[in-house]
Design a protein around this nucleic acid. Structure first.
Lengths: 203, 203
DNA sequence: AGATGGTTCTTGACGACGTCAAGATCGACG
DNA sequence: CGTCGATCTTGACGTCGTCAAGAACCATCT
């Protein structure tokens, strides 16, 4: 077990270490050598498995999309009313944003990862599919004023913007004297406003 | 003029060079020495004026918020109907996102800049104020179902998410067989949907 | 059992990087 | 003409990513 060679599952260990480094130092202070240090391997070990820093971060991003997909599916499971399901999915999205900050600081950073990676694309599409199919269900049950794609893209953008601006919004609420509101609560408010704009007239 | 000392306006030259480096190499491939090289000064000159890389990027971010503020004001100027003004501001926001990508890749990256910098905070608040006052105008003219702050934060999040996800959305439209749509067109669609959700019942 | 080959990881090296201290050059002011 | 502060350069140090070469291990064959 203290064999310096044949670690057993070094790629996963390195991915996990990478996520922790990102959480601790930010993606700006990320370093392959620090990842290797935390994993207890030599400084060049990450290079063997992932090629370069871009490869490792892309792999982290794939993992991020996969857990996002899983969380979105889990958040919506068993909820029959598609509007309620959309709300749950929205909360699930931002929850992933705060519970997996290491992954989420990476998944849309096309300057750091390989956006054309095939596994990345399919993982991202799978996560997006959960949202789009829910919007499509809302359309077929309640009727939508807008195109399904437009609506899904708007919801996605709003939630992603919320994740990114979260700290700024908290800052803002502080200045306004508002009570501090959790990101999930904010997500719920957002999706309520979004739904009322997307539904055909009236309710 | 070819005096190696006393450049004249080195801080601004360095900021401009920094923006170009970010555009060319991405904020991940950013380097103080490359900035110095493009400005034609020694490798340590940026350090003298900005302390460290964080200081330079923070300064770039301040400049970004200032131009964002200016563009938002210009975009809304003279438009009396606050809803039309909101649409114009939304388009202005995403236009800044694509016309000043160097600045915009930095302004919300709290891991790279000093989020507590006083000039940064006030510049950011000024830009946000343009949006919030427009939302407040909509409220007083048309009546809003939601809190003004909530509405403003939703609009902001949606537009920021749009800027960040832009390339992914284009990719998506491609897969769906949709015609390519400009980011300004998408911003207009988004703000229309947002407004219809924010307005009190009916239109 | 012993040799062989491929996979996995280490070692060592190289140039580029951020940052700091020390030095050089200039304008301004006496 | 000399001094001083502001501005920029030079040189150095440790860390970084990446590559080539080598070492250790497993499986397989003879």
């Amino acid at each position: 077990m203290d064999d310096p060679y044949h670690h057993g599952d070094l790629p996963n260990t390195l991915r996990a270490a990478a996520v922790e480094v990102i959480i601790d130092n930010g993606v700006g202070g990320f370093s392959l050598r620090e990842v290797a240090r935390r994993a207890g391997v030599s400084h060049a070990a990450p290079g063997y498995h992932f090629g370069d820093v871009r490869g490792l971060l892309t792999s982290v991003a794939v993992e991020g999309f996969e857990t996002l997909h899983g969380e979105l599916v889990a958040a919506g499971r068993g909820i029959v009313d598609p509007i309620e399901r959309l709300h749950a999915i929205g909360r699930g999205y931002v929850r992933v944003g705060i519970e997996h900050p290491g992954h989420c600081q990476v998944i849309f950073r096309n300057d750091l990862i390989d956006a054309d990676d095939e596994r990345l694309r399919s993982a991202g599409l799978a996560a997006y599919g959960v949202l789009e199919s829910t919007i499509a269900d809302i359309d077929s049950v309640y009727g939508l004023t807008a195109d399904v794609t437009d609506a899904a893209q708007l919801c996605w953008s709003a939630m992603q913007g919320l994740v990114e601006l979260q700290s700024k919004l908290v800052q803002l609420d502080g200045l306004r004297g508002h009570a501090e509101v959790s990101i999930e609560e904010r997500a719920t408010r957002f999706s309520s406003l979004l739904v009322s704009g997307l539904l055909a007239d009236g309710n």
